[in-house]
Design a protein around this nucleic acid. Structure first.
Length: 417
RNA sequence: GGAGGGAUGCCGGAGCGGUUAAUCGGGACGGACUGUAAAUCCGUUGGCCAGCGCCUACGGUGGUUCGAAUCCACCUCCCUCCA
């Protein structure tokens, strides 16, 4: 049984909760490949590094011979959700769902071997199910049990809108587990309730309940909210090396509590080491002590973390280059080695000069003339390091000049024909 | 079905006939400081304009008024209580 023990250890690694370990062991002991379900919301196809960590763990399970089953929730995605606080759940057209699913699969493919995955769309079985089947599904759960989910309960308590459709959502997700006969379903801790519903629904349909495994949510770059693309605090797994590095450098050292005090002075850094680099807890704690004692500098700790993560998603070389670039641009305040070329149409230039407002707008650094004016007024616009002081006076530009807006936006100007 | 409350700029939330492009907070952006951290400080934050100024905005449509985000009518959506 040593092999089973090893496998069990592999499965349990990094989980927050497993329901239940004995069931998991029993499944593994049968020696058959397990079907591991991974749901995907087709309205938000972009994966961030927090998902990446879970995917990496799944990859190991896949390499151990198990099957990852992706479920694209196209059925639910096409219905949309007009109510609730999650307004970011628009109705999606069929092509949109397809395209998003493809994006998702492409991104997942960076880590998992997609050719060994099973990809399923849940419309496949929900179209069959029909209204009668839907009602039957609904009959397997009660409102009281549904309200065990905290966000549902709190919305009821605060008189926030809560559509019936939302209540049905966990059931739909649970039915997916029935349809694909999932052995295991994984998700973030925020999914715990939904995953548990899947167990109950499977039981109701006479199947062996799936084991659920939840993983910690990654804190976003702001150090407060969970990482999420829609909150704008995420590092995407497809982000370019420089971007990825820079974003990771911008995390706060610690998370302020309600009073603005730092409960865990270097909590976010350590959290990233643990979650993203899979450092063991003891090593993270040691790092935290070093940081607190001043033996380690938070900037350096972040830099090596950022490097390691860029290396994960790109390469050692890319990570090294990104780190060097970062120092060049932000520590030494030099120009980035690489910046977009922007071609200025010749008719915007008169006698080698151009209206600064137009220049800024043409380069895409301001959405309106007013915004461009403001940037100039505030001294945020430079051409070749010289501040553009007067928004009314045309500035001299030549081919190859560097336009800089704010601290981090650059463009190399090309004077077009 | 009945009664009442609400809808304001990216978000939250003031204003309740003129001096309101609309207090304030958050966010965002620019500047100082710096480790592209936090904290802090200064500034900006509807559009067009070099500027004078003009235009569009407070759920929608009409109306009252010299003048409306503010009053009236109808409509849409949301919430509460009753059935």
């Amino acid at each position: 049984m040593a092999r089973v023990d090893d496998e069990l250890r592999l499965f349990l690694e990094g989980t927050i909760q497993v329901e239940s370990v004995p069931e998991l062991r029993a499944k593994l002991e049968r020696g058959k490949p397990l079907r591991i379900k991974l749901g995907c919301d087709p309205s938000a196809p972009d994966l961030h590094v927090g998902h990446g960590t879970v995917l990496r763990r799944l990859r190991r399970m896949q390499d151990a011979g198990h099957t990852i089953v992706f479920i694209v929730g196209d059925f639910t995605g096409m219905i949309g959700d007009p109510s609730g606080k999650s307004k970011t759940r628009p109705m999606l057209s069929e092509e949109q769902v397809k395209r998003n699913a493809q994006t998702y699969v492409d991104q997942v493919g960076l880590i998992l071997d997609v050719s060994r995955c099973e990809l399923r769309y849940n419309s496949e079985w929900f179209r069959e199910l029909g209204a009668a089947g839907m009602l039957e599904l609904a009959s397997h759960y009660t409102l009281a049990r549904m309200l065990e989910r905290e966000d549902f309960a709190s919305r009821v308590a605060t008189n926030s809108p809560l559509s019936i459709r939302e209540l049905l959502y966990p059931l739909v997700q649970g039915y997916d587990s029935v349809a694909i006969e999932a052995d295991i379903e994984v998700g973030g801790t925020d999914q715990t309730f939904n995953l548990l519903v899947g167990r109950d629904i499977q039981r109701a349909y006479g199947l062996e309940p799936q084991v659920i495994m939840t993983y910690p949510l990654l804190v976003g770059l702001d150090g407060k909210e969970k990482m999420s693309k829609s909150l704008g605090n995420a590092v995407g797994i497809t982000d370019e090396p420089n971007d990825m590095f820079g974003k990771l450098m911008s995390i706060p050292d610690g998370v302020p509590d309600g009073d603005g005090n730092l409960a865990h002075p270097f909590g976010v850094i350590c959290h990233y080491y643990q979650a993203l680099l899979e450092w063991p807890l003891a090593r993270c704690e040691e790092l935290e002590r070093d940081l607190e004692a001043g033996r380690a500098h938070p900037r350096d700790a972040k830099a090596s973390m950022a490097r390691a993560i860029v290396a994960q998603y790109h390469s050692e070389a890319a990570a090294e280059e990104a780190a060097a670039e970062f120092d060049r641009v932000f520590a030494e305040r030099q120009l980035p080695s690489d910046m977009p070329d922007v071609t200025i149409p010749a008719d915007l230039v008169t006698d080698g000069r151009i209206d600064p407002v137009r220049l800024v707008r043409h380069c895409g650094f301001a959405a309106t003339n007013g915004e461009a004016r403001r940037l100039i007024d505030q001294g945020g616009v430079r051409v070749n390091d010289a501040v553009v002081g007067d928004l009314a006076a045309p500035v001299a530009v030549a081919d190859g000049d560097i336009l800089r807006v704010g601290k981090r936006r650059f463009a190399r100007l090309r004077i077009g024909a």
